[in-house]
């Protein structure tokens, strides 16, 4: 199922970009160059647009399959797209990783807490907070968070820059991941740099994870509510299992099952949302690259990046299926 989805998605992208109302070749050239037939011809040849469409389609697709992504036209003119993605992708992955993790570590416990104490004031406050939190637009939340952190000295009495690891270059911007280049173990051996990089993306990660956090909370709450009324929980209670064991062994474990698909399906939101969050926080990630390519008219790059996004999403979906079968053996791979 994964292969046809990738093929179909990529074909749609190709169609939109190369068969759409805009001629990618003219978009790439400046005003003067468009009138210069030689330059226009050259651009067309380089893009392969003077070939018959089908030929062009096959060429384009096959070069994507072998990851021969070509060179950029306007953005970072002439640099290799492979190198560009390798440069930008880690920052997005870093941001995405922490936004998933922060969302899980805040959203799930809150949801479970609300579920365990359902219909109390704490539950209402938590649920209400989750609902409102989820309804906030990410870009706006980001702006507000930056404003609050930027003037945290005046609001909270301590400054965000001063607590914990020092941030040398402002509260937002690119996390410095270069220390890990070619040496992923540095994540553990160089804790100071790791903490700095985490603190740098933390606000962005919280914003990016806000929607998922709300969802996870809600699902976590209902899952606990459902499991709480199951017969086996009653039985365990009657058997005299201690409260603590009851909660951790019988309730939480089973309540985790419905959370898995939610967590992975948040990937859609994370990747889509990365465009806005990266522009607000000034992180040079792949979403930001996509946006720049789109507004500056580097349409071939847009298509290539879309292919990368499709690969990422399909990959995450595959992981989700595997995870799901591992956690809940009742679900077969052929499931539904």
């Amino acid at each position: 199922m994964a292969i046809p989805v990738i093929w179909l998605g990529t074909s749609m992208t190709w169609y939109i970009i190369f068969m759409g109302p805009i001629d990618p070749a003219t978009r790439l050239l400046s005003e003067g160059q468009v009138r210069n037939p030689a330059a226009y011809e050259a651009a067309q040849t380089q893009l392969g647009l003077n070939q018959p469409p089908l030929q062009h389609y096959v060429d384009w697709l096959s070069s994507l399959i072998v990851f021969d992504l070509g060179r950029t036209w306007l953005l970072y003119q002439g640099s290799s797209v492979n190198a560009l993605i390798m440069d930008f992708l880690p920052r997005t992955l870093w941001l995405g990783f922490w936004s998933v993790l922060i969302a899980i570590f805040i959203g799930v416990p809150l949801g479970f807490y609300a579920g365990m104490r359902s219909n109390t004031v704490a539950d209402y406050v938590a649920s209400m907070g989750g609902i409102v939190w989820r309804a906030m637009p990410n870009f706006w939340l980001g702006i507000m968070l930056l404003a609050v952190l930027g003037s945290s000295q005046a609001i909270f009495g301590f400054s965000w820059e001063a607590i914990g690891p020092n941030l040398t270059s402002g509260i937002s911007g690119n996390p410095d991941l270069s220390y890990m280049a070619g040496n992923p173990i540095a994540f553990f051996t160089n804790p100071n740099a790791t903490l700095q990089a985490i603190k740098k993306v933390a606000p962005a990660a919280i914003v990016l994870g806000s929607a998922s956090m709300g969802n996870e909370m809600r699902i976590g709450r209902t899952a606990v509510l459902e499991v709480k009324n199951q017969d086996y929980v009653e039985l365990a209670k009657v058997k005299g299992v201690s409260d603590r064991a009851l909660v951790y062994k019988h309730i939480l474990r089973n309540a985790l099952v419905p959370l898995v698909p939610i967590i992975t399906s948040e990937a859609f939101l994370l990747i889509g949302g990365s465009v806005l969050v990266e522009s607000v926080f000034g992180i040079n990630g792949i979403g930001y690259l996509f946006f720049q390519a789109a507004i500056q008219g580097d349409l071939p790059l847009v298509g290539t990046l879309m292919y990368v996004f499709i690969l990422m999403i399909v990959g995450i979906n595959l992981i989700q299926d595997v995870l799901y079968t591992l956690i809940d053996p009742r679900v077969g791979l052929e499931g539904e």
């Binding site: 998605g9 749609m12 859609f268 889509g272 996509f290 999403i313 399909v314």
Partner: peptide, 10 residues
């Protein structure tokens, strides 16, 4: 699935 594989915002 193919449409969903492209993030909506993008």
């Amino acid at each position: 699935d193919a449409v969903m594989a492209m993030p909506q915002l993008l």
